[in-house]
């Protein structure tokens, strides 16, 4: 049933931060070794607190930034550094929808121009009439009225703008769609509309989604696979049902206990994590989660656990029993 389209092997993104002219630059490990596979028609959700490297991961998959280390392939062929700026076919295969629908649309361009721009740049052979026809079709596909074509973004609500952003991402017929918290800036009632639209589009077009979110109830709704990240490292990874039913990593468990349930009779014990998320510039030695973990042992403070397991993988020396 798996039909891989995109793979990432141990990708890393490190930034050098200079503090003062003479100080040695500090290495910020925004993403420190993530591996995953995106399958056609399936959704991989990436979950974690802010600052855990979710958005950096999105920027690497969309080829906005080249990874410092690691290997990414699309449809079996490797993505070389800087290839996206040269290869129109390659870059049109992965597109992105941003979190903030107010910042992601050019306020000076009509919706029509925004939708036609990707074609104008990448498909020079498509005549102007055809471009317009496809853009109007796309408006229809995402559930917007055709008369919106000549309007400017400021005339639309957040939900409508997010539909426009989805439409723009689909103009180049991508195979992979990166959704960087696509609904977290929206109203709860609008969230479900956009999520249903995304699910519907995935069924129709067979898209692979990399769905980035910090909202576990949304993830439960859309994901097939889940990857939980902490300080740039995946700590637990596996099929949604397995991860949600029996989280093995204490961090996943804590995240899940923080999600409100709709069932008042089932009072679940909420795990409160002590302490703050450490600065990614000063990651603690050993397991990065150990200062906040209630199961930490001496070994956690010295050694770094690696992801282990088959389908359901987790990086912990003292996992929660399934």
């Amino acid at each position: 049933m798996s039909d891989p389209i995109f793979t990432a092997e141990n990708v890393k993104q490190h930034y050098l931060i200079r503090q003062g002219m003479f100080a040695d630059p500090i290495v910020l490990r925004a993403v420190d070794g993530a591996s995953f596979v995106l399958n056609r028609g399936r959704t991989l959700a990436v979950v974690g607190e802010s600052g855990c490297g979710k958005s950096t991961l999105a920027r690497m998959v969309t080829m906005i930034e080249d990874p410092t280390e690691g290997r990414m392939t699309i449809d079996g062929s490797e993505i070389l550094p800087g290839a996206a700026s040269r290869d129109a076919v390659l870059r049109s295969r992965v597109q992105i929808v941003f979190q903030d629908p107010y910042g992601s649309l050019n306020p000076r361009q009509t919706i029509g121009k925004t939708l036609m721009e990707p074609l104008l740049i990448n498909r020079k052979d498509v005549p102007a009439q055809e471009r317009e026809r496809r853009a109007r079709e796309m408006l229809d596909l995402v559930g917007l009225r055709p008369e919106y074509f000549d309007r400017y973004p400021h005339m639309f609500s957040g939900g409508q703008r997010q539909r426009i952003a989805v439409a723009r991402a689909l103009m180049l017929d991508p195979e992979v769609l990166v959704l960087d918290e696509p609904v977290s800036a929206l109203d709860l009632s609008i969230q479900s509309q956009i999520l249903n639209l995304l699910v519907d589009l995935q069924d129709r077009l067979g898209l692979a989604y990399l769905f980035i979110s910090h909202d576990l109830s949304v993830v439960r709704h859309v994901a097939n696979e889940v990857m939980v990240m902490y300080l740039g490292k995946p700590v637990e990874q596996g099929p949604k049902d397995a991860v949600f039913a029996a989280p093995r990593h204490p961090y996943t468990k804590a995240l899940m206990s923080a999600t409100p349930t709709a069932d008042p009779s089932r009072r679940q014990e909420r795990i409160k994590l002590s302490g703050e998320l450490p600065s990614p510039m000063a990651v603690p030695p050993g397991c990065p989660f150990h200062p906040r973990c209630w199961r930490a042992s001496d070994r956690c403070r010295k050694d770094m656990p690696t992801l282990e397991g088959d389908a359901h993988r987790f990086a912990c020396f003292n996992p929660i029993e399934a």
Binding site: T62, F98, E117
Partner: peptide, 25 residues
């Protein structure tokens, strides 16, 4: 801003990014 990144993802070259995407704003 994200719309500039979006234009970049769509493959806009620096010249287009400067004078078509950003300058009008």
């Amino acid at each position: 801003k994200d719309y500039v990144t979006a234009a970049k993802v769509a493959g806009a070259k620096p010249g287009r990014l400067m004078f078509v995407t950003v300058l009008p704003n």
